[in-house]
Nucleic acid binder design. Structure first.
Length: 566
RNA sequence: UGGGGCAUCGUUCAAUGGUAGGACACAGACCUUUGGAGUCUGUUAUCUAGGUUCGAAUCCUAGUGCCCCAGCCA
């Protein structure tokens, strides 16, 4: 049984090295981090990396991590997203305690600081249009040129900015800009915009504001207000760091945080851009943000992925600055490791084939004792009813089996797990030649699954009593995208959508113990994979989602086309 | 032709001037009342070229490749 964490505890990434050094050298007394999502979508597995990093670092060094909703753009943000973010962070296993903040909490302070900058001649109101601002900004290789409004009197900027706030101007009429350097090689420093006019309802501040700060003018100061020591973000913000520092250096902020950047997570067969996830939802390629095929935390949760598996995965992949695409198999391995250790075993037949045990007494039911988890004896056992008529998996029988097929076949004896050995004697077919029933006999001396004479069948099958089985719908899931790198090589992203990402199976049978399976709790259907009862389940109408398959070496042989080799 | 980053097994992360290692994936073997799990073994890597050094993935120089930046998004 594997109870180890997937990586050695002494392994330290560059962020943790920096934090440790800062603590050791007294650059900070304790560590304070923050996870700062914008509430404009649902959190996904990529966010999990950031959450685990920020909360993990805080935890490990005895500090604290704030949850801050970065709600500076009311046209994209919604309360639904705020709620889902809090749910998902908690579910992942982290707690921000009292430290829940919103960038919008700081709007008044931010506004005052903006006024400070105008007063000291370091900011001005610009009347240029968006197009003109772009033209004046120059290009990557050519410097920009100053706006004609750059040197307008401080009093005029002050007046205009107040009137922008008061709502006197329409969207886009003017902006507030920092006066830095129009010739800076870093475009972010070419008089970056601090405030824009937006007449929109904000989820928290309503219509109190007509101007909203741009990310750059809000983030560092919010960090400073909260006493963040290490502001950890992704690589694309590296170019913003000089601006982050400029604001913090030019404003009377209460602390001086520092920004550090790491490479965001990418996964094969997966897309993690919020824009694309939003399209998948809006264009109904999936049924919602929590569709079990979505890489969102709510989708993964619904699919049956345990939070612990996600955390282990994040530990496994580490933190660095090199762009990378992690193979999704690594994620699946982390999840299987947790599930193998923790999930209860159950019997379920997805594609049923009737078996009649001719020498088994009619009307008799025996309760077979079956281990709940052979990896964890403390999980105990349950009893599973066994009777004369059973369902087994259609795939577990072949009339004319190839060399390496060890399961049931005419004349062959196999073990029914935790029950009896059975031997197939007759194959019943319908008019089309389809196998509809197997006539078998059982060996009464093999009760529990072992023979007194020590003979051992080469295969063990799962089964369910026809009389006692409970009907269920089972939804099989595969990668949402066929290509490991969706939308590359000139293909449209949506061309790479896997048409078979969901297969719905009706007429499946599960053992009685599954009749009241708790929603979201993942169990192992023996020999098949991990499954979790879906929220669409109603009493008498069970629905299970396949979380992941178990590795199946026969399926692998088949896929390799090797099953016929003698 | 500007600025900022990054280059180590197929993938990902280590090695912080001293034997290039782990995990995933792959291959084989063992074991098995899940063809699961587990155990063991194996294959495969320092972007290139110079230089410094007893010794370089690590330091220096010059190249090459890839990523990010010209939103009133974050």
């Amino acid at each position: 049984m594997n109870t180890q964490t997937p990586s050695s505890p002494e392994r330290v990434d560059f962020i943790r090295e920096i934090v440790a050094a800062d603590l050791r050298d007294g650059r900070c007394q304790s560590v304070v981090t923050r996870f700062p999502p914008e509430p404009n979508g649902y959190l996904h597995i990529g966010h999990a990396k950031s959450i685990c990093l920020n909360f993990g670092v805080a935890q490990e060094f005895g500090g604290r991590c704030n949850l801050r909703l970065d709600d500076t753009n009311p046209v994209k943000e919604e309360q639904e997203y705020v709620d889902s973010i809090m749910t998902d962070v908690r579910w992942l296993g982290f707690d921000w305690g009292e430290h829940l903040y919103f960038a919008s909490d700081y709007f008044e302070q931010l506004y005052e600081w903006a006024v400070d900058l105008i007063e000291t001649g370091k900011a001005y109101v610009d009347d240029l249009s968006a197009d003109e601002i772009r033209e004046y900004r120059g290009t990557l290789t050519e410097p920009g040129k100053p706006s004609p409004w750059r040197d307008r009197p401080v009093e005029e900027s002050l007046d205009l900015f107040a009137r922008m706030r008061a709502g006197e101007f329409p969207n886009g009429a003017r902006v507030l800009r920092a006066k830095i350097d129009m010739a800076a090689p870093n475009i972010n420093l070419r008089d970056p915009i601090m405030y824009r006019i937006v007449h929109a309802q904000h989820p928290r501040t309503g219509d109190a504001w007509c101007v909203y700060p741009i990310y750059d003018f809000a983030h560092g100061q919010s960090d400073a207000i909260e006493g963040i020591t290490h502001s950890i973000c992704t690589l694309e913000f590296q170019d913003h760091r000089p601006l982050y520092d400029w604001y913090v250096d030019n404003l009377p902020v209460p602390s001086h945080p520092h920004q550090y950047e790491f490479a965001r997570l990418n996964l094969t067969h997966t897309v993690l851009s919020k824009r694309t996830l939003l399209r998948l939802v809006n264009e109904e390629h999936v049924r919602g943000w929590d569709d079990p095929r979505m890489p969102t935390l709510s989708g993964l949760r619904r699919r049956g992925f345990p939070a612990e598996g996600i955390r282990d995965f994040v530990t496994m992949i580490g933190v660095a600055k090199a762009d990378s695409v992690v193979e999704v198999e690594m994620f699946e391995h982390a999840v299987r490791t947790v599930l193998n250790r923790t999930s209860l075993r159950r019997f379920a037949v997805l594609d049923p084939l009737k078996v009649v045990i001719e020498n088994y007494p009619e009307g008799l039911t025996e309760e077979m004792e079956v281990l709940n988890n052979p990896e964890d004896l403390s999980a105990g056992s349950r009893s599973v009813p066994f009777a004369r008529e059973l369902w087994i998996e259609r795939d577990d029988f072949m009339e004319d089996p190839p060399k390496k097929f060890f399961r049931l076949a005419p004349g062959r004896e196999v073990r029914l797990r935790s029950a009896y050995f059975v031997t197939c004697h007759e194959v019943v077919k319908d008019a089309d030649g389809k196998v509809v029933e197997l006539r078998c006999t059982y060996d009464p001396d093999t009760r529990g699954g072992s023979a007194p004479d020590g003979r051992r069948p080469k295969a063990t099958l799962h089964w369910v009593s026809a009389e006692h089985a409970v009907a269920a719908e089972v939804r099989l899931y595969e990668h949402l995208f066929n290509s490991p790198f969706p939308g590359t090589d000139g293909r449209d992203l949506f061309e790479d959508l896997n048409p078979d990402s969901e297969t719905v199976l009706r007429g499946c049978f599960v053992e009685p113990a599954l009749a009241d399976a708790p929603i979201g709790e993942t169990v192992q259907f023996e020999r098949l994979g991990y499954f979790a009862a879906d929220q669409d389940s109603a009493s008498g109408a069970l629905v299970f989602n396949r979380t992941l398959t178990l590795k199946d070496s026969w399926a692998k042989l088949q896929a390799q086309g090797r099953h016929d080799t003698a």
